[in-house]
């Protein structure tokens, strides 16, 4: 399981790099969306390994609320582009 987490961390480096590098705002949004999902899945894995219910609940909450926040951000960006 530790190996799995290491591999996850390695994959997570890709969207972090893209988010830091890319100038286009939509490519950045894609990278952030990817980071949000990957980190919450990692939180879930850690919670299940440690059998810690509280961390797991936090992971599920981030999974749903983080995405909702990104959706709102996307709508605001679209409005700003229309102005």
């Amino acid at each position: 399981m530790t190996v799995v987490l290491m591999l996850m961390l390695a994959v997570l480096l890709i969207p972090i790099y893209v988010g830091a590098r890319d100038q286009d705002v939509w490519q950045r949004m894609l990278a952030f969306c990817s980071i949000a999902t990957k980190t919450s899945i990692m939180i879930l894995v850690i919670a299940v390994i440690r059998s810690d219910w509280a961390i797991g609940v936090v992971g599920v909450l981030i999974l749903s609320l983080g995405n909702a926040a990104l959706m709102l951000l996307a709508h605001i960006l679209r409005r700003l582009n229309e102005l």
């Binding site: 939509w26 969306c33 879930l44 999974l63 996307a74």
Partner: peptide, 23 residues
């Protein structure tokens, strides 16, 4: 987690596609 993954990620994909094209 499975249900919220399926629903939220799919809808986020739709919203991102819709918004980025509008822009």
């Amino acid at each position: 987690a499975l249900i919220s993954l399926a629903i939220w990620n799919t809808i986020l994909g739709y919203v991102l596609a819709f918004c980025s094209r509008g822009g």
